[in-house]
Each structure stands twice: as C-alpha cells, then as structure tokens.
C-alpha cells in the first residue's frame, strides 16, 4: 500500500535518513523498530508531509492507482487516507476529548465559513460523527472522560486519545508512533488487540514501537532501522533473531 524508495533526509550535516526503502503491505500490521535516533519518527514525518525529503520517493497504492505523494503537504496526504499519531502527543490541548475526535473527522460540511453559519447543513452529520466518536472513545477506554479538557488527561490517557483520534479520522492507513510508550502492560496488550480488531476490518497499520516484547505478538512484518538505514526485515521471529538487530539494540 505504501512504498518508500531511497528516502534521504538531512538536517544540516546530520543525515537522519540515508536511503530508506520500505513497503507497507495492505491489510497487514507492519512494525518498525530501532534504537532512539535511528530515524523512525523522521521517516513518518517525511511520509506524512511534515518534512520534505532531499531525495527518494513515497508512493501510495490505492484503488489500483499509484500516487507519488512525495513532499505533499500534510492535509493532502491525509486526504488520501493516511493518518498518524505522534510520539509526543500533539493533542488539541484546549479542546475537550470529544472535540479532539470531532475535529479530525473527514469531510465535514460545517468547516466552510459560510456553511458554518447554517446549522442545518451540518447538524445531522455532527450527530453521526458524535455517535461514532463515542463508540471509539468507549473502545479505547476514554468514554468516561469525553467531556474533559484534553490538557487535564494523564499521559497515558493522552496516548489513548492519540489512538482514538487516528481511528476517528477514517483512514486506510494508520501510522502509530509509539502507541504504548508509558502504558501499563495489560492496557498495552489491550491497545494492540484493538489495533488487530480494527485491522480485521481492513485498515492497514504501520506501528513504530520500542516495546518489542509486546508488539511482536501482534504484528505481521517487522522492519528494523539503525542510523537512518533499514538493517533487517522479515517475520517477527526472524527479525528478533537477526544478530544485526540484537547488536544495534545492545550497542546503540
């Protein structure tokens, strides 16, 4: 579904991504691991249009068509059906939990300045979105705090809100940047179970995660990165045994 070819991203003299190739298969849950500073988040930023790469292409295959989305602005990448979460939660602080979800829903009629004044144009859609948002909040376990301001949530709840928001956005490909960092083990398993459930409905996932002990149980395919390069890939078991991966984790 997503094809990354030879991506290079430079910050001054520092080469954060040094020719990364990667393929995210449709309908699968793909995991990306690697030590801190190996370029995982930078890669996501490049794919979602937050950064522009110096070299390389990003292709998005969907509906039998192939789009070169390299360097597209974020909102256009989103329009293709790709959403992401942030490693450090970038929630809308002064919006309520519910509003955080409603704000990211796709194709809202009430977001035009003239339509905004005519409630009739969007009230019904808003009801439907609210229903879906409540379902998602209940799913991730934020149902009871739906009317709280987002800034008042705990760090773990903010992570869940990131996830809920990604689910709300109605995407074909969801990129999760460390969804279970700082989450208790039982809940972390629950989150991955949710990912699998949603995946079963046809949504492709690409997950960046450090806690491989938990993550490996739920994913189909694994990429490992170190120093801006892909050093290993394959089924979870194979990658786990790859000496290069072990070395990079111990050494890095």
């Amino acid at each position: 579904m997503l094809e990354i070819k030879g991506i290079v991203k430079q910050f001054g003299a520092f080469r954060a991504l040094d020719g990364v190739d990667m393929t995210i298969e449709r309908g699968k849950v793909t995991l990306l691991i690697g030590p801190n500073g190996s370029g995982k988040t930078t890669l996501i930023n490049v794919v979602t249009g937050v950064y522009k790469p110096e070299a390389g292409r990003v292709y998005f295959h969907d509906d039998g068509k192939t789009l070169d989305i390299t360097g597209w602005p974020p909102h256009k990448v989103f329009a293709q059906g790709i959403v992401r979460t942030f490693q450090i939660p970038q929630i809308f602080q002064k919006l309520t939990v519910m509003e955080n979800l409603l704000a990211v829903a796709r194709g809202q009629a009430g977001e035009g300045v003239l339509n905004a004044m005519r409630e009739g144009r969007w009230a019904k859609q808003e009801e439907e979105l609210a229903e879906r948002a409540f379902e998602i909040l209940d799913l991730v376990g934020l149902g009871d705090v739906w009317d709280r301001y987002a800034y008042s949530l705990s760090a773990g709840q903010m992570k869940l809100l990131e996830l809920a928001r990604a689910l709300m956005a109605g995407a074909k490909l969801i990129i999760l940047d460390e969804p279970i960092a700082g989450i208790p083990i039982a809940q972390a398993h629950a989150i991955f179970q949710t990912i699998r459930d949603v995946n079963a409905k046809g949504v492709t996932f690409w997950v960046v995660e450090h806690r491989i002990d938990i993550a490996f149980k739920y994913v189909d395919y694994v990429y490992a990165m170190a120093s801006g390069r892909v050093i290993s890939q394959g089924a979870p078991d194979a990658v786990a045994k790859d000496p290069k991966v072990i070395e990079s984790y111990i050494g890095g």
């Binding site: 937050v50 809308f92 002064k94 509003e99 704000a103």
Partner: peptide, 16 residues
C-alpha cells in the same frame, strides 16, 4: 477546526 489549528498546527495539518 480553528481551535484545533491553534492548539497544534502540526496535528491539525496531519489530520487534514
């Protein structure tokens, strides 16, 4: 949407 942009421009852009 305006308030979402105000609170986090990056997140708002990523969410379309």
């Amino acid at each position: 949407a305006l308030r979402a942009i105000r609170d986090s421009e990056t997140a708002a852009a990523v969410f379309g």
